[in-house]
Amino acid sequence: MNAQTNIQDYQQCIQNAALAFLERHQAEHLGDVSALLNRAVNHLVSSFDVAEPIAIKLTSLAHVELVEIAFRHRLDLDYCSDTVVVIKDPIKGHRWSVPVNLIYERILNAPDNVRLRSANS
Rank of each mutant, 00 (worst) to 15 (best):
D49M: 11
V86I: 06
N113T: 08
V67L: 09
T5A: 13
L22H: 05
A35V: 09
R72I: 02
F71S: 14
A3M: 07
Y10T: 12
A62K: 03
L102C: 02
Y10M: 13
E105G: 01
I14G: 08
I69P: 00
V50D: 07
F71C: 07
A55K: 03
R24M: 07
D89W: 02
T83Y: 09
R39D: 15
R39H: 13
R24T: 10
Q26E: 12
C80Q: 09
L61T: 09
T83D: 15
R39G: 13
R106F: 05
R117C: 06
H94V: 05
K57C: 10
D49E: 15
L108M: 05
R95Q: 13
E68H: 04
N120T: 09
A40H: 04
L19M: 02
K92C: 06
P53Q: 01
A51G: 14
A20R: 13
N42Y: 05
I87F: 05
S46I: 03
A20T: 14
D76T: 02
A18D: 05
S118E: 01
V84E: 14
R72C: 09
V41S: 07
D49R: 14
N2K: 01
A40G: 14
L36S: 01
I54F: 10
I14Y: 04
H25M: 00
W96Q: 14
N109M: 03
S97R: 11
E65P: 00
I7S: 10
S47A: 15
C13Q: 15
N109P: 00
S121L: 12
C80L: 01
M1E: 10
L22C: 12
I107N: 09
E52M: 04
Q12I: 01
A40W: 03
V33K: 12
A119N: 15
L75A: 11
V84K: 08
A110T: 06
F48E: 06
E105C: 10
V64G: 07
L102K: 10
R106I: 01
H43Q: 12
R39S: 15
V86P: 03
L19A: 04
S47I: 03
I14M: 13
R95S: 13
H25T: 06
V64N: 12
D32E: 13
R106Y: 03
N120K: 06
E68N: 15
V41T: 09
L66G: 01
L37H: 08
V100W: 04
R24S: 14
N113S: 06
S34H: 12
N16L: 13
S46D: 15
D78Q: 11
I103Y: 01
T83I: 04
A35D: 13
A70Q: 11
D78N: 14
S47L: 06
N120R: 07
H63K: 01
V64T: 14
V67P: 01
K57I: 07
L36Y: 06
I107P: 00
V41D: 02
E65C: 07
R39A: 15
I103T: 00
G93I: 02
T83M: 08
I14N: 02
E68W: 02
